[in-house]
Computed example of a mutant assay.
Amino acid sequence: MSALFNFNALLLVILLLICTCTYIRQVVPGMVDSRKDKNIFFGVFWKFARIGERLSPYVSLCCIAMAVITFVG
């Protein structure tokens, strides 16, 4: 079953994208920042990085909750 039809898998993919984009922006800021206006595809990655930076406590709690749900379920 693909992530589009499984809600838990979709949430997991979104959380992983947020965490990955935030990490990449912290390590190599020019890689994400330089492409935020040039291409709509890479602009989405910049928005994921911004969400990870500004809402990091909530993203962390969601990651912990998804880990518990994945291990228990």
Rank of each mutant, 00 (worst) to 15 (best):
M1N: 14
S2L: 11
A3W: 11
A3R: 06
L4M: 15
L4E: 15
F5P: 01
N6L: 06
N6C: 10
F7M: 13
F7C: 11
N8R: 07
N8T: 12
A9N: 02
L10Y: 09
L11R: 05
L12Q: 11
L12W: 09
V13E: 07
V13L: 08
I14R: 05
L15F: 08
L16A: 12
L16H: 08
L16I: 15
I18C: 04
I18S: 04
C21K: 06
T22V: 06
I24C: 09
I24G: 10
I24H: 06
R25D: 03
Q26L: 05
Q26I: 05
Q26N: 13
Q26S: 07
V27C: 04
V28F: 12
P29Y: 08
P29I: 09
G30D: 11
G30C: 09
G30E: 12
D33V: 10
D33S: 12
S34L: 06
R35K: 12
R35S: 07
R35V: 11
K36S: 14
K38P: 14
K38M: 12
K38D: 15
N39W: 05
I40A: 13
F41W: 01
G43R: 01
V44Y: 00
F45M: 06
W46L: 04
W46Y: 11
K47D: 12
A49Y: 06
A49I: 07
R50M: 08
R50S: 06
G52C: 09
E53A: 07
E53D: 14
R54P: 03
R54M: 02
R54L: 06
S56T: 13
S56A: 03
Y58W: 11
Y58P: 00
Y58D: 01
Y58R: 02
V59L: 15
V59A: 06
L61A: 00
L61Y: 01
L61K: 00
C62W: 14
C62M: 11
I64F: 07
I64S: 04
A65Q: 03
A65S: 10
M66Q: 05
A67T: 15
A67V: 14
V68C: 01
V68F: 08
V68W: 01
I69R: 00
T70V: 02
